[in-house]
Design a binder for these strands. Sequence first.
DNA 1: TATTTTGTAAATGTTGACAAAATACAGATA
DNA 2: TATCTGTATTTTGTCAACATTTACAAAATA
Lengths: 218, 218
Amino acid sequence: MSGIIKSEPFHIQAYKNIQRRLLEKEFSPGEQLTESFLAKKLGISRGPIREAIRMLLHDGLLVQSGVHVFVFDPTFEDVIDLYSCRERLEPLGANLAAQNITEENKQKLKEIIDNTESALSNKEDNHKIASLNTDFHDLITQSSMNRQLIQFMNLIRAKNIYMRNVLLGDFTRKEKFIDEHRRIADAILVGNKYEAEQAMVDHIQVDLETWKDIYKQK
Amino acid sequence: MSGIIKSEPFHIQAYKNIQRRLLEKEFSPGEQLTESFLAKKLGISRGPIREAIRMLLHDGLLVQSGVHVFVFDPTFEDVIDLYSCRERLEPLGANLAAQNITEENKQKLKEIIDNTESALSNKEDNHKIASLNTDFHDLITQSSMNRQLIQFMNLIRAKNIYMRNVLLGDFTRKEKFIDEHRRIADAILVGNKYEAEQAMVDHIQVDLETWKDIYKQK
DNA sequence: TATTTTGTAAATGTTGACAAAATACAGATA
DNA sequence: TATCTGTATTTTGTCAACATTTACAAAATA
């Protein structure tokens, strides 16, 4: 019959578990993480932990110095580096999405925009709004149908979320971005790749400016 | 004192070893690779092999289907996907290199151009010329001083070399590219970031056209 | 004959034990 | 005081044994 849920292997569980703890700042940036410490904390052996650590090193959420592994301690320069890449890649995603998006994803895109607007007007919590924001960007990347780009954007997104949590904390902007999102979505929905790309460039640049503003006043 | 060479851990050795065998097409695209097969072949246990496999999965040289791992079997669509990303990222590298390159790297850049010219006029072997080509692109990326970009370009380069070996074999172009390289280098050396970026865009587009030509006639 | 069950081989998943290496620290020496 | 050096401790590196999963073939059953 059905319904038999195959549990994930431990190294995948460990990867997600540690990633979540990192995003929730349960570990301090710069802190050393040892295999045995994590193994004991998650109640499994060091083998799967090693694999999870290797994955998080690849994601850039952990960094290696010699043989030891530490929690990534981002600087504002790291934000600039990441956004330089993001500013090139994500507009490519918007461009391709305008050409390749499926009808199903068009529907989803409209829903995300609508849900975001109502969440904003209902003043729902930051977590909900941040989640919708992520969904918006993720859907566009997925709609590009470029597997290489999707892989790169996954790396960028994880690191971006982490750096935002570490460097900005709960500070965030809530009002302006919906207009920018709608401009991007409209362009994609009518298949205007140039406008979609430019709208995404503008959106990312505004986002980085907001980073700078918040970072300055801290 | 000096000269004490610390041998690398097995999983790093295994990573490089398997990567080399993949680039040399010792394994066929689409072939399944098992941990025990590789462990026996390299004469080490499965543990380090597992880690090496995970790294090669991240590089995209191996792919996972269910629990099993196979040698990446690239299509021309994969080339397009990769070049779409490369066309955005590597020109960014040239742009940044024009602003941030050190005097030391300027010297190296000139040397690479000179060596390439003499290698071409002496009709040296393809391997030597391909190596100088890689050095040229790598040096520019390094000179961007953007660590995130360097990481992405490392992924792009490995996959690019692999796909070239698999899909094009020994076919390559030898004459034209030195002029394009010199145009890029000149712009970087005088700090003209716009010209450096555009020259790199043009270079990559010509490269992709060459791919298409060679691929068509096969 | 069709279907289900059982058996078997091959692959990955997981662990704990031990080896090797790096690190921290105390005490000796200049 | 500063530095060297040996030692204890911690951490990563490596392995081999065992467990689990999967796919497929063979056998039993309806």
